[in-house]
Simulated assay, not measured.
Amino acid sequence: MDIVDLAVNGTLMRGLVLNPNLIGVGAIFVREAFTEPVYRLWSIGDIHPAMVRVRDGGAAIAVEVWQVPSAGLGMLLWQEPPGLSVGKVRLADGEMVLGVLGEPILCENQLEITEWGGWRAYMASKHPVFSVKGV
């Protein structure tokens, strides 16, 4: 079976609302990681994040790396909220993987949450019972 490594930075992460979509296509959790410090993160209506690569002012963003069967990648993408897509993401260790990215227009007039370093940390700041660590 052909598989691809996919970095996810929001509601696809373990224990979160869209994680069953990953499990449903046969994905397997590999590890927690950080991106290179060239990304910024926005909260899209506090429903999900959007990560965008930037030339200046980026930070390392917390992600989870999953092995996803190639045959399930398209289905997974169709289940993502509008404005999210799959592109190349460089991790802090230099590895290049596919990852979930947001279209810049999706972030307009939304709250930038880069300073929290990730979706879990941002959500934990709003809801103290929200787990910062994975499940």
Rank of each mutant, 00 (worst) to 15 (best):
A71P: 02
S85W: 12
E95P: 00
G10D: 06
L84I: 13
L73E: 02
K126T: 03
K88Y: 13
D46P: 00
K133W: 12
L41R: 02
L106P: 05
T114Q: 00
E36N: 08
G118R: 03
S131E: 14
E115S: 13
A59P: 00
R120V: 03
V97Y: 01
D93A: 05
L76N: 01
G94K: 09
G72S: 05
L111Q: 14
P69L: 07
G58R: 05
D56W: 12
V100K: 10
M13Y: 01
V65L: 03
G117A: 04
R90M: 13
K88V: 15
S125C: 08
V89K: 00
R40I: 12
V4Q: 09
N9S: 14
M51G: 01
G72Y: 04
Q110D: 02
G87S: 09
R90W: 10
G134F: 09
K88R: 15
V129Y: 14
P82Q: 13
E112Y: 02
L76P: 01
L91S: 04
P82K: 12
R14P: 03
G24D: 03
P82I: 09
T114H: 01
C107R: 04
W78A: 13
A7I: 07
F34H: 14
V86Y: 12
I113N: 02
G58Y: 05
T35P: 04
L18M: 13
G26M: 07
E80L: 15
G94E: 11
I105K: 12
A121R: 12
K126W: 06
E95Q: 14
A33V: 06
G118A: 06
I23H: 10
E36F: 03
R120G: 03
P128K: 08
L73R: 05
P104S: 10
V100E: 09
L41V: 04
V30A: 11
E112C: 01
V17D: 14
M51N: 00
G10H: 07
P49V: 09
E108I: 15
T11F: 02
E36Q: 12
V4H: 05
Q110C: 10
G24L: 05
P49I: 08
L76M: 11
L6C: 06
P20D: 04
I47V: 15
A50I: 03
V86A: 11
G117Y: 01
L106M: 09
V38E: 13
I61Y: 00
G87W: 03
I23Y: 10
M75D: 15
S131A: 15
V38T: 13
R40T: 12
G10R: 06
E64Q: 13
K133R: 14
L101T: 03
L12K: 04
E32G: 14
M96Y: 10
T114G: 02
E108S: 11
L77A: 15
W78T: 14
